[in-house]
Amino acid sequence: MINPQWLHTFAVLVEKGNFTRTAEAIGITQAAVSQHISRLEDRYGTLFLRRTRQLEITPVGENLLTYVKEVECAQKRLQQKLIHDDTDTGDISLITPGSIGLTLYPLLLELQEAFPRLNVRHRFAPDNEIVASILANEHELGMVTLKPTDPRITSTYFTEEPLELVVPASQKNTEWPDLQKLGFISHPDGEAMATRLLSRKCPDSPSIQEIPYHGFTNQISLILEPVAKGLGFTVIPQYARKAFERQEDIYVVECGSQVVDTIWLIHRAEWPLSLRAQKAIEFLKGKI
């Protein structure tokens, strides 16, 4: 590693153009200035051509000066990140399940519109990937439906999300035989969600495997498209249903007591949240 004092002396000498003025500016002796430059030249080669009353920087010196400026810029950026934590500037990085994410992402864009120096970075992922991303410091904030037990993660209650049985708007009869005739539109969590909810609505009926499958998609924003076209029913989280544009084409079936998932907000426990992340959390809580 290059001695930072030598580099500072070199940069001041470039600016002052004179060993005496450099020594005065730094507060060291002229001999010390000469020693610092000699140490650098021993390592990198000639930095200056010494002419009467004038120093001329060499190409090697120019390259070293570029390096010094890059280091100074890096130090300033680090200082800004470590000390000047701004509520209105920088990344807001969030990773969530698809359903809640469909609601939160537009809200975050609304926040970014109000504060254009914010940079919203959002990703959809399942719970296990969300936890891994938080632990790897890839995202500052995450949301999961299963509260992590890892001591490196802080978990706080954010909201609740009921599961909903959604059928085509034209389908008002929703007993078990009606669902069997209609068919199931599945998704990656479809069977598990349908089993949980339908066991409440139809406790004496067979499992979801007894209902014919009429479609599958892993894109949460598209799950309700075949339902809206009358091709089947599905079970999805409420926020995913609310994000669907054509509400008039679907119908939410009343299933008695709700099946509810808790949404947990998570982040690394070892260090505090940035001010902009705290701002985003309060903004989202006020909107949900």
Rank of each mutant, 00 (worst) to 15 (best):
V60E: 13
Q278L: 12
G215M: 08
L65A: 04
E164N: 11
F184N: 01
D189C: 06
P97S: 11
S186P: 07
G286S: 12
Q238T: 13
N63A: 15
I57E: 02
M193L: 10
P188K: 09
I263Q: 08
A23T: 02
A269V: 02
Y157M: 05
L118W: 02
R241E: 04
R51C: 13
G98V: 13
V144G: 02
Q180H: 00
P188W: 08
K76D: 14
E129A: 07
V260L: 08
L135W: 07
R268M: 14
E129I: 09
K172D: 13
N218I: 00
T66N: 05
R21P: 04
I266T: 00
E24Q: 09
I26N: 03
H36V: 08
T58Y: 08
A136K: 14
E175H: 13
H267G: 02
S93R: 01
Q258S: 10
S155V: 10
A243I: 10
L179D: 00
I2K: 07
A25R: 06
A192Q: 14
A192S: 13
A32W: 07
V71Q: 10
R51L: 15
T89V: 12
R121C: 08
T66A: 00
K81M: 12
L197A: 01
Y213L: 11
P106V: 03
V253D: 14
F10L: 12
E41Y: 01
A132T: 14
E161I: 09
E129N: 09
A280H: 00
I100L: 06
T66L: 09
Y213R: 14
Q35I: 09
P177A: 05
F115W: 08
K81W: 07
W176A: 06
K16S: 05
I92L: 01
V131K: 12
Q35D: 13
F19R: 09
V252E: 10
L40F: 05
S257D: 13
Y251N: 11
V252Q: 14
N173K: 15
P206C: 04
V12N: 06
L64I: 01
L13G: 03
Q247G: 06
A243F: 15
A243C: 13
A114T: 05
F19S: 05
Q171F: 11
R200N: 08
G230F: 03
M1L: 10
I28D: 06
H8W: 15
I37Q: 03
I263D: 02
T52C: 00
T46M: 13
P188V: 09
R77A: 10
I92Q: 03
K81V: 05
Q112S: 06
P272T: 04
R241G: 07
F244A: 01
T89M: 11
D204W: 00
